[in-house]
Amino acid sequence: MKYVTETTSTAPASAGVPAFGPSHAERTTRARVARLILEHGPISASALGQRLGLTPAAVRRHLDHLLGEEMIEVRRSRPHAARGRGRPAKLFVITDAGRSAFEHAYDDLATSALRFLAEQVGEQAVAEFSRRQLGDLEARYGAAMRAVPPHQRVRALAEALSADGYAAAAGTAPAGGQQLCQHHCPVAHVAAEFPQLCEAETAAFGRLLGVPVQRLATIAHGDGVCTTHVTARELTQKNDDKQESGGTSV
């Protein structure tokens, strides 16, 4: 095995590298260690070293740093030896905090991609992309919406969103109708710059539920919960009947 020997840069701070702390190369390697744990964990230190071509000491240094930042954690597994003898093997897995760090990195990439799209093609292209993305969600949720009576669709939508990580819940709105609350938004950091994502999502909810909806609050704009008001189906029906009977004429 050919090992890579890491060196700490001694370049002055004026050259863009801090006088103290890890060099850019070391941070890059540490990120690779974390990604391997994310993708292949639980994984041992020796397996990490073999995949990256690092010395045991270098792997240990990165693992200690990641453990200190609570990006990873240790799990122990006993070797498959006779009568269970031997010390438990030390394996490393990613933590929720570590997973979130990668999600934010993906957010940055998505934001950069949408920013480039807006600059090169225009804001309308971002809106069309948002509608296309939410169209896929709408197609997946459509069967679940059609499988339940209309008055149960808000709850069914909340359950479908929760299964996708949105931590959603349905409830009665204070002024009538219903509310759909999403306590987590996987794309909040992206939507903060590109509200077209929220607008496309709101429109998709209206089509799935078959009634008018209105977005009252969003995590992307700093609110604690994404809240969508869903108009009571009875009120919508009354308005339709009134228009059909000519009741709005004067």
Rank of each mutant, 00 (worst) to 15 (best):
K2I: 11
T8L: 13
S9D: 11
P18S: 11
R27I: 10
I37M: 01
I43Q: 02
Q50F: 09
R51N: 00
L54D: 00
T55E: 15
A57E: 14
V59G: 01
L67K: 05
A82E: 08
K90H: 08
F92Y: 15
D96C: 09
G98Q: 03
F102Y: 07
A105V: 12
A113V: 11
L114T: 02
F116P: 00
A118K: 10
Q120I: 05
S130W: 03
Q133F: 13
E138M: 03
A139G: 05
A143L: 10
A144Y: 02
V148S: 12
S162H: 06
A163V: 07
G171C: 02
T172S: 15
A173S: 13
A175G: 05
Q179N: 09
L180R: 03
C181H: 10
H183E: 11
V187L: 14
A192V: 02
E199M: 08
A204Y: 02
R207E: 04
P212F: 07
Q214F: 08
A217F: 08
A217K: 14
T218P: 05
I219C: 01
G222W: 08
V225R: 09
V225T: 14
R233I: 02
R233D: 06
L235C: 10
T236E: 09
Q237F: 05
Q237L: 04
K242S: 12
E244H: 07
G247C: 06
S249E: 10
